[in-house]
Design a protein around this nucleic acid. Structure first.
Lengths: 197, 197
DNA sequence: TACGATACGGAACAATGTTCCGCTTAGTCA
DNA sequence: TGACTAAGCGGAACATTGTTCCGTATCGTA
């Protein structure tokens, strides 16, 4: 979390007013640019939109990924918190898992190219780490509950499942023939233990 | 196929000897560089290895993807041809499908970053098209056979399955916790029709 | 108001894909 | 064999993008 923390809201102390203003402007601008041009939009475009120089971006967000994390942080948080809630509110842990996966897929699919970036090799380790660190434990909890309830077979690791789901969401745009949800449903069905009478 | 064809072996007529020599050298060099540095290796590296200028690469292979296609063409071909063979040699079409998918995964996983490139947005349409055009029909044949044999439920499209498998193979390196094969196995299990007694 | 630390802007650098063009050379024809 | 022409070549040059650096401007304070 170290890198991410540094770039979070942290309104605490001893920061110049213009710095705070710029940080906020950057978050807003980045969110807008990401929404229209996708997560791969050039840094310069975000800087221009926020009306600051590129240097300013790099001071606030040491690497591109830190900016992305900051922009989507609250959404990731919401997704993480939905896990335990769903588990508590749903009779079948498998159903809870299914709904939670739906939420996660919604999130990935809404952001153009987020999934791509998530798995990209180059320098997006911070992003990758943050998302996974935050969500894998939640997923694990759901998986464990479903195993305990005898609804799915044990042996699948949350990390692997999450990455698989993330991967399946890559390239969803630009091709109506490819709908990751159908495959993810297949995956979950494969997970399911056949009801033993 | 248009783009791919142009850059294929086509030893036919009216090409200068040095051009042919260079084309061959480029294919060899590219194969070596791809093997060691991955599919994302800089064009310049390939040019250097082949002892030619970058201009020469672009004359023979108008875009990067054309070079990749040319390098892996025969392997894709082999995979495509394995489909019908497996189907003929195996009693259960589902088993044939499973083996064929294994072959495909082998291929993707062997080439560093091929899967990534396959799904990349930027300008790799030729690559994407070639692989999919060639292999989707083969996969469809296997799927159909398995459906006809009552081994899997109908409704899954070969294109979607292929892309899903391709996606799952992304980022396999660099993380022992992630093994795409396990997830692909899950996917196939999800496809399977429960034996109705 | 003056001063020091903080923050800013954007030029500059590096990596990479791609294009362009003057020079070289293979193949041909007398 | 010796030109001649078109095919082919090399690599400089251009465009794009991430990232760093540093001289300058600004904020907060004494």
């Amino acid at each position: 979390m170290s890198t991410a923390d540094r770039s979070a809201q942290a309104p605490t102390r001893s920061k110049r007013a213009d710095a705070l203003r710029n940080q906020q402007a950057l978050l807003t601008a980045a969110a807008e640019v990401f929404a229209t041009s996708g997560i791969d939009a050039p840094i310069r475009a975000i800087a221009a939109r926020a009306g600051v120089g590129v240097g300013t971006i790099y001071r606030h967000f040491p690497a591109r990924a830190d900016l992305v994390v900051a922009v989507y942080r609250h959404q990731v948080e919401a997704c993480a918190e939905a896990g335990p809630t769903l588990l508590a509110d749903t009779d079948s842990p498998l159903t809870a898992l299914r709904r939670w996966v739906d939420l996660f897929v919604d999130f990935l699919v809404t952001k153009h190219g987020l999934a791509n970036t998530l798995e990209s090799d180059s320098g997006f380790d911070a992003l990758h780490s943050y998302f996974l660190d935050r969500l894998v434990p939640v997923c694990a909890q759901l998986l464990d509950a479903a195993v305990d309830a005898g609804e799915i077979t044990p042996g699948t690791h949350a990390y692997e499942l999450m990455r698989g789901i993330g991967n399946l969401c890559i390239g969803r745009d630009s091709d109506p023939r490819y709908d990751p949800r159908r495959l993810i449903e297949l995956l979950l069905q494969g997970l399911q233990r056949p009801p033993s009478p």
